[in-house]
Amino acid sequence: MNIEQLLSKLPEFGHNMTQFARRLGLVQAGLTVDHIALRVTEKQDADHLLTQFKKRGKILSDKIINGRPIYLIELDEPLNVADWQVSVVELPFPDGRKRRDGWEHLEFVLPCEAITADQMLKAVRQLPVITAKWPVIQDSTLGIEVKTSDSKADDEPVANPTVSFKQEQLTIKLHPYDIRQVIGAMPV
């Protein structure tokens, strides 16, 4: 896999993510896209993509999380993902699981004071667009899986509790801070 292949798939990914975000009501909520994430199953592909992304931007973070490197790269020129401009790419190196390579998820910022996953879920559920749909989201009528997670590395200045919505191969994640704030690359 190379960067040209990824970029050629970005319009379809953006269209699918827009449809999913509309279905959840997040387009109407006007949330900001924080970053886009990839999935790569072969280390040589991840190495190649990292080299290519470094030519298009700078590494903000290169941490080992759950035993594998995960890079955040801020691009010099943002990607157009449907109607969103996205300047940060998350490139996790393979973890041994076989998955579909390519664009995997978008992360949105829902500004709030949540510091735990439960608090973040409560903030998400208070969005009027989500409140109205919550019964059919929660009971899986829409085929959407909801997960929460608490994640904060020791050296990160703020917690980043997350609520994830997954439908088939698409995932949308919501968290309270811009990823650059979470890693300490910009003020909170």
Rank of each mutant, 00 (worst) to 15 (best):
D45H: 15
I65Q: 14
K43V: 14
E113L: 06
T116W: 09
I70A: 04
N16K: 00
D62C: 10
Y71D: 01
E113P: 00
D34M: 02
Q28E: 15
L75E: 11
L49I: 05
M120C: 03
L121Q: 12
A117C: 04
P92G: 14
G96T: 09
A46N: 10
E107Q: 02
D83V: 15
V40D: 06
V89S: 09
A117L: 04
V81G: 10
L127C: 01
N16V: 00
L106R: 05
D83P: 09
M120R: 03
Q19W: 06
K54E: 14
P78T: 12
N80M: 14
V124M: 06
L24H: 02
V81M: 02
H105R: 00
T18A: 15
R23V: 09
L121N: 10
G14C: 00
Q44L: 10
A132V: 14
F13G: 01
Q126P: 06
E107K: 00
P92E: 03
M17R: 02
R56I: 04
N66V: 07
R22Y: 02
V81D: 06
A123F: 04
E74C: 06
G102L: 05
P111F: 12
K54D: 05
V124H: 09
E90Q: 12
P69K: 15
H105Q: 11
L75D: 07
F93P: 00
V89A: 09
H15Y: 10
A82V: 03
F93H: 10
V27T: 14
Q119N: 02
A21C: 13
L110S: 01
P94F: 09
I73Y: 11
P78C: 08
R56D: 05
V88N: 08
I36A: 14
G14N: 08
V109H: 04
L127T: 02
I64G: 04
R23G: 07
G102E: 03
Q44V: 13
L91R: 02
P69V: 07
A132Y: 08
Q52A: 15
A21I: 11
